[in-house]
Simulated assay, not measured.
Amino acid sequence: MMNIQLEKPVFYLNEFALRFELGPDDVDIWLDDNRKNYNEEYFEIAMSRALSIYEAAFKPSDMIKVCYQIFSDGRKKIRKSDYFFKLFEPLCGKALEFSEHRDIYTEDLEYKRHCWKRVTISDVFVSELNIKPIIQACIDGDFGDRGPTLAGQLFIINCDKELMFHLYDDRGLDVAASSKWALEDLYQNQNQLLLDYDKQYMDSLFK
């Protein structure tokens, strides 16, 4: 696999990465102070921004891999009944690989049985993904009552462009790459969505 770290926080653990803001600061998540009613405008903006970034980074003919991982105490497993497999059911005939990893978050792995369980779907074209419900499940990660969500971490890897897309929650997403050149078009075309907090570093990559 290309030289990209598949672990959070993607932006800070990869030399070449961009961080984008999804949920707008000037729109509240809630319609009321009791936090009982969601402001759908907030989630619609987050979805629109995520789709714009995704479509700028991935073309229909690009070859991709989908990686999904969960933390395990040695007993917890990725099961075929997990929502991940419902989301990606159209790809059920593709190459599927289950693996275990102890080379990420090593400071948290206190016992030998602790590991990260990962499933990878390979040989997929972007055109085969129904991306909207996938993005929605990631955006709603902290709001389970809005609909089904993913319990683990999802990474979509563009094998042709050598970059990786990771939407961590409603606040934002990271795109990392093997080189800064793989990110240059995305940096230019989606510049208005780059997170202000880290923008100085991102600007320095392309000076």
Rank of each mutant, 00 (worst) to 15 (best):
I4N: 02
I4K: 03
F11V: 05
F11G: 09
Y12N: 15
Y12I: 15
F16N: 10
A17V: 10
A17T: 11
L18Y: 04
R19P: 04
L22N: 04
P24D: 02
D26F: 09
D26E: 14
D26L: 04
D28Q: 10
I29D: 04
I29L: 10
Y42V: 09
Y42H: 14
F43L: 08
F43S: 01
F43M: 03
I45D: 00
A46C: 10
M47G: 13
S48D: 15
Y54L: 00
I64L: 10
V66C: 09
C67W: 08
Y68G: 07
Y68I: 02
Q69T: 05
I70C: 08
D73I: 14
G74L: 04
R79F: 06
P90Y: 05
P90W: 06
C92H: 14
L96E: 07
S99I: 07
S99R: 09
E100F: 10
H101S: 13
R102W: 08
D103R: 06
Y105C: 11
T106Y: 13
T106R: 13
D108Q: 14
E110W: 12
Y111C: 07
H114C: 08
C115D: 04
C115F: 11
W116I: 08
K117S: 05
R118H: 05
T120E: 11
D123I: 03
F125I: 13
F125T: 15
S127W: 09
S127K: 12
L129D: 06
N130D: 11
N130W: 04
N130F: 08
Q136L: 14
A137P: 11
C138K: 06
C138D: 05
D140Y: 15
F143S: 11
R146G: 03
L150H: 02
L150G: 02
L150C: 04
A151L: 11
I157V: 15
N158Q: 11
C159I: 14
C159T: 15
D160Y: 12
F165I: 03
F165A: 01
L167G: 00
L167M: 05
D169I: 06
D169A: 08
V175Y: 00
A176L: 02
A176I: 01
S179D: 14
K180C: 01
W181M: 06
W181H: 11
W181Q: 09
W181N: 11
L183D: 00
D185K: 01
Q190I: 03
Q190R: 14
Q190D: 09
N191S: 10
Y197N: 08
K199F: 06
K199T: 03
Y201M: 08
S204E: 05
L205P: 03
F206W: 00
K207D: 00
